[in-house]
């Protein structure tokens, strides 16, 4: 499943994922955003892995926020934007 969201005034956030028995698997966040340090990408992927496919945007954004170390810097991307892209991937997957 694939979802994209262009954060208003920000960059493109892309999500590729699978759903197995109601949970997110093989979650891959990508896009043309900026993230420091770059290892934070893996933290975000790992935080989303295993989340219920029914989780709403606010829940997903919170899960991402909690997983980020205090020194992580984001530019053109936010936990909320990632959550929107995840919901879009799930929504488009459901329609397919």
């Amino acid at each position: 499943m694939h979802g994209e969201y262009k954060m208003p005034g920000g960059k493109l956030v892309v999500i590729d994922l699978e759903v197995h028995v109601g949970h997110l698997r093989q979650v891959q966040v990508s896009g043309d955003f900026f993230l420091e340090p770059d290892s934070a990408l893996h933290s975000i992927n790992a935080a989303l892995e295993g989340q219920p496919a029914t989780a709403d945007e606010a829940t997903l954004a919170n899960v991402i926020q909690q997983a980020l170390a205090a020194d992580v810097l984001m530019y053109g991307i936010s936990p909320e934007a990632i959550a929107v892209a995840v919901r879009r991937a799930l929504h488009q997957g459901a329609e397919a």
Partner: peptide
């Protein structure tokens, strides 16, 4: 490509 971009995308 950028550090966080998907190669195949």
């Amino acid at each position: 490509i950028g550090r966080f971009q998907s190669l195949r995308n």
